[in-house]
Computed example of a mutant assay.
Amino acid sequence: MNDKLKAKRPVVDFHCDVLSKMQLNSQVDFSHLSLDVTKESLLEGHVQLQTFAIYISQVLGTPRFEHVVRQIELFRQHILSSSGGLRPLLWREDLENKDEAPDKLPRTDGSGMHQTRSPWALLSLEGADALEGNPLYAELCYAMGIRLMGLTWNYANWAADGIMEQRGGGLTRKGHELVKRCNELGLLLDVSHLSVRGFWEVLEQAALPPIASHSNAFTVCSHPRNLQDDQVRALISRNGRIGLTFVTMFIKEQGTVTAEDLLLHIEHICALGGARHLMFGSDFDGIEHHVEGLEHPGKYPAFAELLLKHYSEEMVKGWLGENALHYLQTNLPSKSSS
């Protein structure tokens, strides 16, 4: 299938860790060979929207708000600059022309390819640790362009327990305050990494439908980071979204992992009623071992062809991008009400 037809299936990817890599290595820019996600690989994969997570590495010591600010600076310098060239996604109005997928077309002088539209870039915060116990910092996050908030990474912080915290606690008092502030601001909530108890407390209290940006099905692969069936059903009932991830240990418990292994997760979530709630959150640049056939965003068109061998065009287009775009077009804040 030629590039023009493939471009009709634009992709949305709800999670990558490019900014953390940039923070840890000042030599890394948006075209660095060490990155899975680059402008070139996004265009190659027909990625219409990439979410860039702000994850504060444990290497940096105690997380501080200045670490968040630094990654936002890197986002602006490398991702949104003239060299990066991506468009920031802040408001639902930005998506009014969402059917205009990024594409590469031949230059009229025959000198190569050029882009006609740049992908969007959305900012998320992966873990509230660096907000330093102050829910008011959520306001600054929102003002600086963050639109998606995850309360934890894997372990406990001042707001909540993560899924790998053995005590399995839920939200703290300040965590409840943070959720309330996110509701007031219109910050969307991400339940990937949350403890089971924390998951249910966020589902109960969130004003807008939450998402799991990068989690798979526990019934298919019993890693704690994956979602139990009742959690999947709860997200579906709230009209949230589930971003299947390419972390190999979340896909298959042992052995070589290929792109086909993701089909079991897709099939299971669809069987639970989630066909219109599936999307992808690759975790590119946060992956130690890559799925064969899904090593970087440029592999998405080939993955789409694999999906089309088993599912309809409408379903595949939904999973690749349309389900995520409909969610954002409905739930992002409106510029007129800000």
Rank of each mutant, 00 (worst) to 15 (best):
D3Y: 15
V18C: 04
L19A: 02
Q27F: 10
D29M: 08
S34C: 06
S34N: 04
K39L: 13
E40M: 03
S41T: 01
E44T: 06
E44C: 04
V47A: 02
Q50T: 00
S57E: 02
Q58C: 08
V59C: 08
R70E: 15
E73Y: 07
L74A: 05
L89W: 15
R92K: 05
E96K: 10
E100F: 15
A101W: 07
D103H: 12
L105W: 14
R107I: 02
R107P: 01
T108M: 09
R117W: 15
D129F: 14
D129P: 10
D129K: 07
P135W: 00
L136V: 11
A143F: 15
M144L: 15
G145V: 06
T152H: 14
T152I: 08
N154I: 01
A159T: 00
R167V: 12
G168I: 06
G169A: 02
G170A: 00
R173C: 09
G175W: 00
L178M: 13
L178P: 13
L189Q: 03
V191G: 01
V196F: 13
W200L: 04
E201P: 09
L203S: 08
A207Y: 15
P210A: 01
P210G: 01
H214E: 07
A217I: 03
C221Q: 13
D229V: 00
D230R: 10
Q231H: 09
A234C: 11
R238P: 14
N239L: 04
I242R: 00
F246M: 03
F246D: 02
T248C: 07
T248G: 04
F250R: 05
K252A: 04
E253G: 09
E260F: 15
L263A: 08
C270Y: 15
G274E: 11
L278I: 04
L278G: 03
D283M: 10
F284M: 03
E288N: 12
H290I: 05
E292H: 14
G293N: 11
G293E: 12
P297T: 00
Y300Q: 12
A302N: 12
A302F: 15
F303D: 04
L308S: 08
L308M: 10
M315N: 11
L320D: 05
Q329E: 14
Q329S: 14
S334M: 06
K335A: 08
